[in-house]
Amino acid sequence: MENTEKTYTWMALVDSTPRQVDLTGNASLAEAIAAALQAEALVDPSKIACSEGSCGACCVRVDGERLLSCLAPAWRHFGARIETAASWRATDLPMRLAQAGAVQCGFCTPGLVVALGDLADHGVKPKTEAELADLLQAHLCRCTGYQQLLHAGLAWLNEQENS
């Protein structure tokens, strides 16, 4: 069957680069940001796992607000400024997580980078690993058991200069 459906163009500024995504068909008007980001990217730093807001893998920052992008309607955020883990590539956060053993399969890691990066930008400095665990409760990791992640995240957050 010929693909006769209309194509809609969704736009966003993703990690400081303007992106246009062509979405075909009326059903695609219900896409979430996560799906739109993945539609044309070869590597999508925001991962899609549960699609129900339960795992945190798709966490990105949209116009300065941290969001689980699988539940954020793309068209509500047309033209938005989106920051994925790629926006923190220049920081030492990825290296610190890797060095700490906080990365195994790595599927949850980009979402955690956004969460930690956003906490740092808000000057959040948890006092204990338990306090940080609360802040990261939305993020599932099935590989690491969290200990190395909390350890590295706590140290890194407390080293950040207040912005």
Binding site: V43, D44, P45, A85, W88, A98, V103, G106, T109
Partner: peptide
């Protein structure tokens, strides 16, 4: 030694690794 664990971990944390689902 623990350092070689960085081999792919860094790329994953930087969001540079494409998984099969992508």
């Amino acid at each position: 030694e623990s350092s070689p664990a960085l081999r792919d971990g860094l790329a994953k944390a930087r969001g540079e690794v494409a998984f099969g689902s992508e």
